[in-house]
Amino acid sequence: MAEQIEAAALIEAVAGFLAEVEGTLSGRRAFHAKVAQNALAIVARELAQQPRDAERAALAGFLGADSRADAGLDALRAELCGRLRAGQLTAETPGLLEALQVAVMAKVAVDNPRYATFKRLSGGG
């Protein structure tokens, strides 16, 4: 039986190929090759860092849903938004801003880890 290739290895191979051919391209094709490389880098970071899991844990901890196995991320987001709209939660609610910061930082670490504010807040610059 053939060994299964890891998704990260496939992403790395395609990104390497794009980097190799990018120098031979010009104009629109070179731009699209760079966009594809950036997209692959985001996917690789997402697979490695699992930001949805970090967001789910932060929101579940804040909302007290740790013990609810069925509390998926979409349900937790909906609950949080509903409670914010209803005025049950405000910026002064203990733990809210901290939970939101954990969730946002996990996502930005994947989407744009070079973002200056992210680097400052995460101690990376």
Rank of each mutant, 00 (worst) to 15 (best):
Gly61Ala: 05
Ala78Arg: 13
Arg28Tyr: 07
Arg56His: 00
Arg29Lys: 11
Thr117Met: 11
Leu76Ala: 05
Ala109Ile: 06
Thr90Asp: 11
Lys107Val: 15
Val104His: 05
Leu100Trp: 05
Ala116Phe: 11
Ala58Ser: 06
Pro94Val: 00
Ala41Asp: 10
Asp66Arg: 03
Lys34Gly: 14
Asp53Arg: 03
Asn112Gln: 11
Gln50Val: 05
Ala71Met: 04
Arg114Glu: 13
Thr117Pro: 07
Pro51Met: 08
Lys107Met: 14
Met105Ala: 10
Leu97Ser: 09
Thr117Cys: 02
His32Asp: 15
Leu76Gln: 05
Gly95Asn: 02
Pro113Glu: 09
Val35Lys: 09
Pro113Lys: 00
Leu84Trp: 03
Ala58Asp: 01
Glu98Leu: 06
Val110Tyr: 00
Gln88Asn: 07
Ala41Thr: 12
Leu73Thr: 05
Lys34Ser: 15
Leu96Cys: 08
Ala65Met: 06
Ala78Asp: 15
Gly87Leu: 10
Pro113Cys: 06
Ala33Cys: 13
Gln88Asp: 11
Pro51Gln: 07
Pro113Leu: 05
Leu80His: 00
Arg68Thr: 15
Arg45Gly: 03
Arg77Tyr: 06
Ala58Leu: 01
Ala44Asn: 11
Val102Cys: 03
Glu46Ser: 10
Val102Met: 01
Pro113Ala: 10
Arg28Ile: 11
Ala99Val: 07
Ile42Arg: 01
Gln49Asp: 13
Leu97Ala: 13
Ala99Glu: 07
Leu40Asn: 05
Pro113Gly: 08
Ser67Val: 12
Leu89Lys: 04
Met105Lys: 01
Gly64Cys: 02
Ala58Lys: 00
Phe118Glu: 07
Leu76Cys: 06
Ala60Gly: 03
Ala57Gly: 08
Leu63Ile: 03
Arg29Pro: 11
Asn112Pro: 06
Ala71Asp: 07
Ser26Thr: 11
Phe118Trp: 06
Lys34Met: 14
Ala106Asn: 03
Asn38Pro: 08
Leu47Glu: 12
Asp66Pro: 04
Leu80Cys: 06
Gly27Arg: 07
Ala48Asn: 10
Val35Asn: 13
Pro94Ile: 03
Val35Asp: 14
Met105Ile: 12
Leu40Phe: 05
Gly27Cys: 07
Asp111Val: 15
Ala75Pro: 07
Pro51Ile: 14
Leu100Ala: 15
Glu98Pro: 02
Cys81Thr: 14
Ala57Gln: 09
Gly72Pro: 08
Thr93Leu: 00
Phe31Ala: 12
Ile42Asn: 01
Leu59Lys: 02
Ala116Ile: 11
Leu47Gly: 09
Ala99Gln: 05
Val108Thr: 09
Arg77Glu: 11
Val102Arg: 09
Ile42Trp: 04
Arg52Ser: 02
Ala36Gln: 02
Lys107Ser: 14
Val104Gly: 07
Val104Lys: 02
Ile42Cys: 06
Ala44Thr: 15
Asp74Tyr: 05
Gly72Tyr: 04
Gly64Ala: 07
Arg45Leu: 04
Arg77Asn: 15
Ala36Tyr: 01
Val102Gln: 08
Val108Cys: 09
Ala65His: 01
Lys34Val: 14
Asp74Gln: 12
Ala54Leu: 04
Ala106Lys: 00
Arg114Gln: 14
Ala99Trp: 00
Ala65Leu: 08
Thr90Gly: 14
Glu92Arg: 07
